[in-house]
Structure formats: structure tokens, C-alpha cells
Design a binder for these strands. Structure first.
Lengths: 156, 156
DNA sequence: TCTTTACACAGAATAAAATTCTGAAATCAT
DNA sequence: ATGATTTCAGAATTTTATTCTGTGTAAAGA
């Protein structure tokens, strides 16, 4: 299913479901101006074609005791495929690393990391990430505050 | 509600709901080993206390025609409160900027930005972000591939 | 132009799920 | 121990999702 096959109603559905994944079908149908049946049909189609990938609950980081979030710029010791693969494989097993992106620019990877506090973050960086053999260096950006964190992508 | 009041069952609920926000209460109750009534009670409590903030549908970026995602390191021309506030206010109105974090380190802000393609990304950077008066410089990291992007936080 | 086909839709019927209610068991503090 | 509080299971009720049927509409072909 290409984007060309998405009409205005589909766009609106995606927008609403991104910001509220638990809206009832009845309410959803009201907001887009269709009856429940075709509304559900459209949503199911978006799910089946993989345009809607999944649904997630978002939890309050601070309230569950995760006070620290950081971005870590990682530079590897080389750029051979085996080195990258080795790094990624290790990363996957670390639950505190919630994002790992291969990027262009002055570093190789950018990680998003969460931890209970600075002390446990330091332990994680020093005893887990910096201990990976292929990691040459890391540079941390601690998040002081977050001004925007929307789950709604602006569909073109 | 502090983290101390969350028992093992709450932890499991949060873990499941983070990875599958649309699970039925019946299924959820099976997975944690309670009957539907107390299961629902617990989930509602987590919602009411704000530990569960919201639910969101995740959509496939590429399938809706958003081929480019980047991180942008932004350095401002100063650090007075008014400068930061001016920047944040402008950022909030740009839908392509889906995250904006105030960070420590060599830059001031880190943005996560999405765009249709490199051309429209360039337009966004040059005509929107770099045009903000208080922005001194930007440095872009284009995401080549994403190896990890979990919505499940490891609750301590 | 007329027909044919294929969709997309609304409304009603059905199935499934959430929610509420009641009372019993377990836990806790006194 | 004892009373109070909390947590739970099972059943009843309400709400919601899902399926079904028929109608209108738009596009494709004769």
C-alpha cells in the first residue's frame, strides 16, 4: 500500500490514532464523520498493510524511578562490517539502551539511554558500553529537559 | 504514587502494555495470572496516577512517505532564558521536529527531525531551523539505519 | 450510452469485551 | 487476636467491536 492510496480520511485516522491509540471505534467514527463499520474497516486495513505497526502505552519515566535520559555518541574502532555487527549485537542485549541509530557525521552511532540516576548511568557507561571492545570512544549528552516529544508524525 | 508501591504484577503489566498497548483485558489478565476484574483495576490505577501517560499507534515511517530521519545538534547564540524560550516556542510550531531536548555537552539542543526526503529536509533546515534568529549553528546526523527502537523501558 | 463490476458506505444484528457489583479471602496495623 | 483495609474472583450488566446485508456510487468496458 503506497502513500498515494491514503486519502484524507486515512490521514486523519492515522493522526488521531497516533495521538490516542485507545480511542473507541465509535468515537473515532464520529471524529472522521463515518459510521463505525467503514471506520473499523479502514483501521484494520491500515493495520494489515503494516502502515500501523503497533500500539504502545507510554509511561512516565520519572514516576517509575528512571530519572536520567541521555544521548550517547559512539565512535567505533573501525568500520568493517564485522565490527559494526559485533557492536549492534551487544547493544541489543542492554535494556537501558532504548534506541540505537547508525548515523552520519562525527560519530558512528547515537544511542538513547535511560537509567535510574547519574550513578547507575555512570556504571552503565563505564562497565557496559565503554567495555565493548569495538567501542573507541563515547560522548554523553545528558537531557536536562524535554520540550517536545510528539508521537504524531506529519504525514506528507 | 511512588515506584515503591509498584509490585511485581504492576511491573509486568507495564512491561506488557508498553510492548502491546492494545491487548485485551482478558488476555492481559491471563498473562499476569489474575482474573479480569482486578487486572482492570490495576491498569486503571496506573492510568489515573499518571504512571501510564497515554497510548499511541506507531506507524511505519517509510510506508507513509517519510524517508528521512535525522538528529540535529543546535547551538544557540546565547544562553539567556529569553533566548532559549524564543527557540523553544518556534520549535513547537514545526511538526517535522518530533523531539526537542535541552542537553549538556558541546551543543545546546538536540532535535529529532523527520522529512519526506533529503531535499525537503534541506529546505526545512535552511529555511526554517537555521532561519531562527537565536540559532547560531546546526550540525546534522542523518540516520542511516536504526538497530533498536524499543518502547519498553526497563523499570528498576 | 448502457451495462457491468467493484467499492465504500449505513444500519441492524451478533459477538466479544469492558465494567460494575457482591462477597470472600488475605494482609496489615493495632 | 481483632478490626480495618485491601485485593481478589465470579457473576451480572453495560458498552464496544465485529459481522452481515443491502444500497448507492464511481469507474471500466462494450
Amino acid at each position: 500500500m503506497a502513500v498515494g492510496k491514503l486519502d484524507q480520511i486515512d490521514h486523519k485516522l492515522l493522526e488521531i490514532l497516533q495521538s490516542n491509540g485507545k480511542i473507541t471505534n465509535a468515537q473515532l467514527s464520529k471524529e472522521i464523520g463515518l459510521s463505525p463499520a467503514p471506520t473499523l474497516e479502514r483501521v484494520k486495513k491500515l493495520e494489515n498493510t503494516g502502515i500501523i505497526e503497533s500500539y504502545h502505552a507510554q509511561i512516565d519515566r520519572e514516576k517509575v524511578g528512571l530519572g536520567v535520559m541521555t544521548f550517547v555518541q559512539v565512535t567505533l574502532s573501525g568500520h568493517r562490517k564485522s565490527i559494526t555487527e559485533s557492536f549492534v549485537k551487544t547493544i541489543e542485549a542492554v535494556p537501558e539502551i532504548i534506541e540505537c541509530h547508525h548515523v552520519t557525521g562525527s560519530c558512528d552511532f547515537l544511542l538513547k539511554v535511560i537509567a535510574k540516576d547519574i550513578a547507575s548511568y555512570q556504571t552503565l557507561i563505564m562497565e557496559t558500553i565503554n567495555e565493548i571492545e569495538v567501542v573507541a570512544s563515547t560522548q554523553t549528552m545528558v537531557i536536562l529537559s524535554t520540550f517536545k516529544n510528539t508521537k504524531v508524525l506529519p504525514i506528507p
